[in-house]
Design a protein around this nucleic acid. Structure first.
Lengths: 342, 342
DNA sequence: CTGTTAGCGCCTTCAA
DNA sequence: TTGAAGGCGCTAACAG
């Protein structure tokens, strides 16, 4: 009997194991672990000691099955975690979920609607308590809570085309208008627009903002200066270059997202035209760039936090399920200027 | 009887509901859904029709409970999703998990070891199949699989101090040596070092690489040029400025991570000294910066993918649980030069 | 205060 | 090929 090494079994012990070890009934273990006050101190001690010795960990899955309670999981389905935008959003969601001891289950669709459909299906099968999704397409039928037995769904950055879905969007219109206005205020009258696909809601909103600013300045929208850019890398740079090579090129450009902004920046830098540039979405470290850059900035984490809040509200039975809500995250126009020796 | 609207009940139907609807036994439903071949085509049809009508979705949690099988979840615990580094890593993990129809559960410790402990505990209670963790501290006892009933654990970007833990690290030493060597090759002999806390493994490795390069060039390490930088923002800039204000300032600097690199860049740009700069970690869009920048780049997603692969290997009983493995992701030195009109 | 019984939703095992 | 019984780990609901 020379000091047998206390080996921890590799299989997870169950409540019964703990009960047997502590020589009590499983119910006493259950109550103790749940903090039920009607357990005598001695019993509690015995149980906790056994839990400690066996390194017991309650099986939350089985628990959830019996209590019928929530899984404590939020699904988060995005179109591309590689984009820092979505990771910041995920951070926001995680933060709010963590406050309630909930976890976030990730899903990346890479912009594929079929993948989105099966991801949502999978998450539903896993009985997540709700889903936050950045829809990849415009057909949202598979995201309708009605088709998901009432599973709460919140859209992020796009408005829903089905009822009973809360959403958080960015002030695409206002931000674009303000940024375009700031270019106008600098005296630019010919401003190119590097837009997104016309089927994207954010794309049309940002174009609306751009047009609104021009009209408010009494300027007509010149279709020759409007370009739609496929989301492939490099396409934005090509489109920007094409604008710069027009007979009567724009003196400034507004890019509808950060990819387009970067592409336009490259085209302008290479052409050496000094064309002014503004773009939607913040660009990190743009203050280190060689030329000035104006961006429409907003708190991306806030998008995630608000989306999570909307979801949590839906989960709270007390709040009652009122009508769908739509939250808008405000934007601000920010101009980066190159650092330099004073 | 005027066309009653087909209302989908808001509560999730169970297998029994489907069975009752299809007028078969629950077992037939179960077998059908699992693709058991010994179900007659007619039965299969009846079942699938009922599933369709009721929008039934099998409860994976209950299923897992009975089969004793895995939850199909991987835990991913990082120290700060806000850092694009970790989100790219998450993308890699997600990609590999998705190949096996597994999902990723996120946890953010914000560098807090206590939070890490409770996150791991929570994930274990949720019966994830394994955990990938970027440890916040140097005490790894709570991450020991032996303390977690054999739950597989993989460390990312830091080597484990407990046995039986696989890990994926970056070639901190080699990358730092190469980057420092490239500065030396440009003729610099006084090279400042902006390091991390000395308790961080990556910090000491990167310092080792820096020193090795100097020694290989026959140069002595000047302690006056070595700074440790707290991870607060702005501290790196202050430290870099201090170096620049030395009586005999360095003509180049090597920064041990991207935060330090950016801080040093700012300090140098403000001082206008034209000091050369290299840093560990890639800096996105550095080609748009006003001055050249050399970085130690590596495939961050690869860190996540390899970590996930190690974990999946451990889960595969066929692979057998050999000794702990340590994978190193290679680095490359990349120099960004400002764009300009040709 | 503690223990017993029953069952959450599903699947393994055995019988028909 | 289908169904009935039993149990995965846990906890409500009821005893005692």
């Amino acid at each position: 009997m020379g000091g047998s090494v206390s080996t921890v079994p590799s299989a997870s012990p169950t409540m019964r194991d703990v009960a047997a070890f502590a020589e009590v009934s499983p119910m006493t273990v259950s109550r103790t672990l749940r903090g039920d006050p009607r357990v005598s101190p001695e019993m509690r001690q015995r149980v906790l000691a056994a839990v400690e010795t066996l390194r017991y960990r309650r099986n939350d899955l089985a628990r959830g099955l019996r209590t019928g309670r929530s899984s404590g999981l939020l699904g988060l389905v995005v179109t591309g975690l590689g984009n820092p935008f979505y990771s910041e959003m995920a951070l926001g969601v995680e933060a709010l979920a963590a406050e309630r001891d909930m976890r976030v289950v990730l899903g990346d669709t890479a912009g594929d609607v079929d993948r989105e459909r099966q991801l949502v299906d999978d998450l539903a099968s896993r009985r997540v308590d709700g889903i936050i999704v950045v829809p990849a397409g415009n057909d949202h039928r598979h995201l309708d809570p009605a088709a998901l037995h009432g599973l709460p769904v919140v859209f992020a950055t796009r408005p829903p085309s089905v009822p009973d879905v809360d959403c958080v969007v960015v002030d695409d219109f206002g931000g674009s208008r303000a940024a375009t206005a700031s270019l106008l205020a600098e005296g630019h009258e010919r401003i190119g627009f590097l837009g997104l696909g016309r089927s994207l809601w954010t794309g049309t909103e940002r174009l609306r903002g751009y047009c609104a600013a021009l009209e408010e300045a009494g300027l007509a929208v010149d279709d020759a200066l409007l370009r739609s850019v496929a989301s492939t890398s490099g396409a934005a740079e090509d489109a920007a270059r094409a604008l710069l090579q027009l007979p009567d090129p724009p003196t400034a450009m507004f890019a509808a997202n950060n990819r387009n902004t970067v592409g336009a920046y490259r085209a302008i830098a290479r052409a050496g035209t000094g064309t002014a540039l503004a773009g939607f979405d913040d660009v990190p470290l743009a203050d280190l760039f060689a030329s000035p850059l104006t961006v429409v900035a907003y708190d991306v984490g806030e998008v995630g936090r608000r989306a999570a809040q909307l979801l949590l509200d839906r989960l709270d039975p007390a709040a009652g399920s009122g009508h769908a809500r739509m939250l808008t995250v405000p934007t601000s126009v920010k101009t980066y200027r190159p650092l330099g020796g004073s």
